[in-house]
Design a protein around this nucleic acid. Structure first.
Length: 554
DNA sequence: TCTGGCGTTGTTCCC
DNA sequence: GGGGAACAACGCCAG
């Protein structure tokens, strides 16, 4: 109900008006939302239309600017192939068109006699500017545009408006706002409309001009791909979700922090890549969980599976409402930290050569397979930034963007902000140990043995700290530390202490700047003065922080 | 304006 | 080994 209302509103046309003008030929533009199920924009493209064409534009921007690794390309192409297969069941096809959207659409509008363009709302900065341009071109061509929200549970702009015009910056605040908005809209059923709106496509002509390309067609070497553990596409997404939802006990007792980052089989759902590309509707998943929970005791947000969908909602909403969300400079929610450029350490981290087996195994899994457990992401992100290497989270973000098959602009930036304690999370003294953390769920180091075969023969006692193994043990294991596997590039205990102090200094600078700004604006001068003079809780707290900083930096 | 409680996922030590 | 407190002490937010 809500979505239909929104659709009409955003498109600036009424349903009555639509029926009178009766668009005959439409394009549904697939970007994310690579699915037929619960796709309100696709449904809008079929509404009262006799010829709907499904289009995906292979925008060169993604090849040149978007930092997409080969595993994610493979996932995308599989998803497109799956979509094409599904459309064939409706006597239709997917039209994959090469070129910039701004060049492609005016031609398609004209050649195909299009009167209606529909697409799913995308809140990422590039998508927003791209879509604004396409909207202008459509308007110029007399083509109506209908946009629908279905990548998120709620319309992010509505959530922001409900929060008073700015995005909620805490999870609890988001929950409060969403509770005021009511449950998310129900999924839409599309099959009948799709059947009516699809028209036959000439087979031979089609594959030559509009077929889904192969990796080789795109200049990618398929040999660079890792094993295909999570094939792309709506069919796989729905099958994966169904399998998972059937395990109701597991679903009801799911608590994210209790899942294992280094199990050999994923301990979580791995629905993230399917949600990223929209092969799976978040609302289908949400209501699938509602059914699974029904009448049973179950975990709750933030740790439950519903909670995971809300985290996705949280970061997408903040990302949509925060300029420069993916960088430190000009990002209002981000603490400014004096990270250091260290290409050698960054490369060691990226390639799994830090000398810390747990970190290196995680990064190897990421590079080869395109997915690692969320807590593994925490450990490696903390290590790169505030924990050990003091390298900017922006660099880590770019590496994740390249390697992850589920790399999502908002979630990636949001989580890096979180883990580097630059925003949302502030307890910077809680540092993951690259040695201790993994042991909790994998004492024997089986995960390390799998991803770093060189270390596979080390006894349990040394597997997380092979540099502590006596020379004789290293020789017996066929791996000399410093020759066959690196020595640790930093001393964790020393780096941790130094970096906690550096974070304290960064926070102190930020708070100092805030106070100065408040004073300069003629705000609460009395409060500022009181703090400056010393005395009271705040001042003693400040003195403590200063001592802490001095102890480690001087 | 101040204060106490809380925050998805730290580590170490002790019982 | 499991649970709870200490460690040192962050920002946010409701009341």
């Amino acid at each position: 109900m809500f979505l239909q209302r929104k659709t009409k509103h955003v498109a600036g046309i009424s349903f009555k008006g639509l029926k009178k003008t009766m668009a005959q030929r439409s394009i549904h533009w697939f970007r994310k939302g690579l699915r037929l199920h619960d796709n309100p924009a696709l449904m809008a493209a079929c509404d009262g239309v006799t010829h709907m064409r499904a289009v995906f534009v292979l925008d060169p921007w993604f090849a040149t600017q978007a930092n997409v690794g080969v595993n994610r390309w493979r996932f995308l192409l599989q998803a497109l192939k799956d979509l094409d297969n599904s459309l064939q069941k409706y006597n239709s096809r997917l039209f994959v068109v090469r070129g910039k959207p701004a060049d492609v659409f005016p031609k398609l509008f004209k050649d195909w006699g299009i009167t209606l363009l529909t697409y799913e709302v995308d809140t990422e900065p590039y998508a927003v500017s791209r879509d604004e341009e396409i909207d202008r071109l459509a308007q110029g061509a007399g083509v109506k545009v209908t946009r629908c929200v279905s990548h998120t549970l709620y319309d992010t702009q509505m959530t922001i408006a409900k929060n008073g015009g700015s995005p909620p910056l805490t999870y609890q605040r988001l929950q409060t706002v969403l509770s005021q908005l009511g449950p998310p809209p129900k999924p839409v059923e599309i099959k009948e409309k799709l059947l009516k709106a699809c028209s036959p496509v000439l087979e031979e002509e089609h594959d030559k001009q509009y077929g889904v390309p192969s990796l080789a067609d795109l200049g990618k070497d398929p040999a660079d791909c890792g094993p295909c553990l999570f094939p792309g596409g709506e069919s796989h997404a729905l099958a994966r979700m169904d399998t998972m939802l059937k395990k109701t006990n597991w679903v009801c007792s799911f608590e994210k922090p209790k899942t294992e980052p280094n199990s050999l089989e994923p301990s979580t759902t791995v629905l993230s890549p399917y949600l990223k590309f929209g092969c799976l509707s978040p609302r289908i998943f949400y209501y699938g969980l509602v059914d699974a929970y029904k009448g049973k005791k179950h975990s709750m947000p933030p740790v439950s599976l519903h909670g995971q969908l809300l985290w996705r909602e949280f970061f997408t909403t903040v990302g949509a409402g925060t300029p420069n969300f993916d960088q430190m400079e000009g990002n209002q929610v981000c603490t400014q930290v004096d990270w250091e450029e260290n290409t050698e350490w960054l490369e060691a981290w990226k390639m799994g050569r830090t000398g810390y087996p747990f970190i290196d195994a995680m990064m190897t899994q990421l590079r080869l397979e395109g997915w690692i457990h969320h807590l593994g992401r925490h450990a490696v992100a903390c290590f790169l930034t505030r924990g050990d290497l003091w390298v900017s989270w922006e660099h880590g973000q770019r590496v994740f963007e390249e390697y992850l098959i589920d790399a999502d602009w908002s979630l990636n930036a949001g989580n890096w902000l979180w883990l580097s304690a630059s925003a949302f999370f502030h307890q910077y003294f809680r540092v993951y140990s690259p040695v201790v953390f993994g042991k909790k769920t994998d004492k024997n180091g089986d995960f390390i043995r799998k991803y770093i075969p060189k270390l596979s023969k080390f006894p349990e006692k040394y597997i997380y700290e092979p540099w502590t193994a006596p020379r004789a043990v290293q020789e017996k294991c066929g791996c000399i530390i410093g020759r066959d596997y690196p020595k640790p590039i930093v001393n964790h205990d020393e780096a941790r202490k130094k970096n906690i102090a550096r974070m304290a200094a960064a926070y102190a600078r930020r708070n100092g700047a805030k106070e100065a700004a408040a004073g300069g604006k003629g705000g609460n001068k009395a409060g500022g003065k009181r703090k400056a003079e010393g005395g009271g809780k705040k001042s003693s707290k400040k003195a403590k922080v200063e001592k802490h900083i001095t102890d480690f930096l001087m």
